[in-house]
Nucleic acid binder design. Structure first.
Lengths: 206, 206
DNA sequence: TCCTCATTCTTACGATGTAAGATTAAGCGT
DNA sequence: ACGCTTAATCTTACATCGTAAGAATGAGGA
């Protein structure tokens, strides 16, 4: 990763490059492995060099959640606002699941990037066109966003059913039975089930 | 916090006492302030002493999420399963919001305590009595749990509307308008709105 | 009384985030 | 071609972190 260079030779670092390398490192070895020195080494550079592209480690982590949501693209509300919301939710979930090790970060840092605001703006536009008042449209959008984050966060520390599969059927009979009966339901199916319910409910509540 | 004692005098520490002190410290000064030395000092004890009651810091953090959900009490499904689910969700949210600084922890650690399993078992019982098949009941329960976690996580890094209030109405007109129009909606109202929608949707999809 | 053993403290090590400042080379105006 | 400025990089240093290893202390049972 670190081709040796003559001392004083520059490496052409960028905030973007640093963030990308951080994502790769965190994807590969987890958040605990993401130290400034380690990241520097990955880029063939001393730790302190990174501070020219990122003010401190917290800002680096902020940048990671930025990277996490950057691939998001404004949802399409042409068909119906339900379909629009649904694809927004599915896309968001896919973006988060693409980097499971980064997911815990969104629990402590807001993701307000230009990218993200643009996505929200488009969604509001779609919801507005469908007749929802602005404040209500924002409520709906927050509901879905929080929902997706929650599903991903609670499901990505290993499928929760895994934690249940080993427990005593004597102590928790229904839990054990439900876990056994639902073993075929994978995370995707479970998510879709809940998402469809939420959207249906939002629909009914007009 | 640390009354001086003669050397060799014991302090009567317990895993419980350590965890409680950790919760207090994290509540007061945040997770970054929660170091083993700092926590020891808070208890009038050296850092290494804590390792007799907790195997390592990760286990301490696991214990914190345990403390977070410990006050939860099995929900009452007598009236209807919708009411039962609703009170489960409201209680869970309240438990999480009671210690906002600890909330990020649940994003990286599962909360499978006896307490929690008992709550889930009771909930499954209530849902089962209402006619839901076990696997479906578990889906419903996960849907609500994940939903609550998501709402709390995305809302507790400051009300998201706060992040929006400062942005340029020229760049994101709908976002700005919605934020302004919905300024009165507080977090509670927003949560209840989304929760009711979800439950209604789960009902319809039964 | 003596022994055992859980509790507590001491010391030590490697790793971390980052402040301060030295060093280098790239890009510019002349 | 030359020197100046300035951004990129490295060096050194420090306080703090988690925790391994083991010594010291006192309580309780034999």
């Amino acid at each position: 990763m670190a081709g040796r260079r003559a001392p004083g030779q520059r490496v052409g670092l960028t905030r973007e490059a640093v963030l990308r390398a951080a994502v790769v490192l965190a994807d590969r070895e987890g958040l605990k492995a993401l130290s400034m020195r380690r990241l520097g080494a990955e880029l063939g550079v001393e730790a302190m060099t990174l501070y020219h592209h990122v003010p401190n480690k917290d800002a680096l982590l902020d940048g990671l959640v930025e990277q996490l949501v950057t691939p998001l693209t404004p949802p399409d509300f042409k068909e119906s606002w339900q379909q629009g919301l649904r694809s927004y939710a599915v896309d968001l979930r896919a973006a988060l699941l693409a980097h499971p090790n980064l997911v815990p970060l969104i629990a402590s840092r807001p993701a307000v990037t230009g990218q993200n605001l643009q996505v929200m703006e488009t969604a509001l536009q779609g919801l507005g066109a469908a007749g929802l008042k602005p404040a209500r449209a924002l409520d709906v959008l927050y509901a879905v966003t929080g929902f997706v984050v929650g599903q991903v966060v609670t499901a990505s520390d290993g499928d929760p059913v895994d934690h249940l599969s080993g427990l005593d059927a004597g102590d928790y009979p229904l839990l054990a039975e439900a876990a056994a009966a639902g073993a075929d339901r994978d995370a995707d199916r479970r998510f879709t089930f809940a998402l469809d319910a939420l959207i249906k409910g939002l629909d009914a509540g007009r």
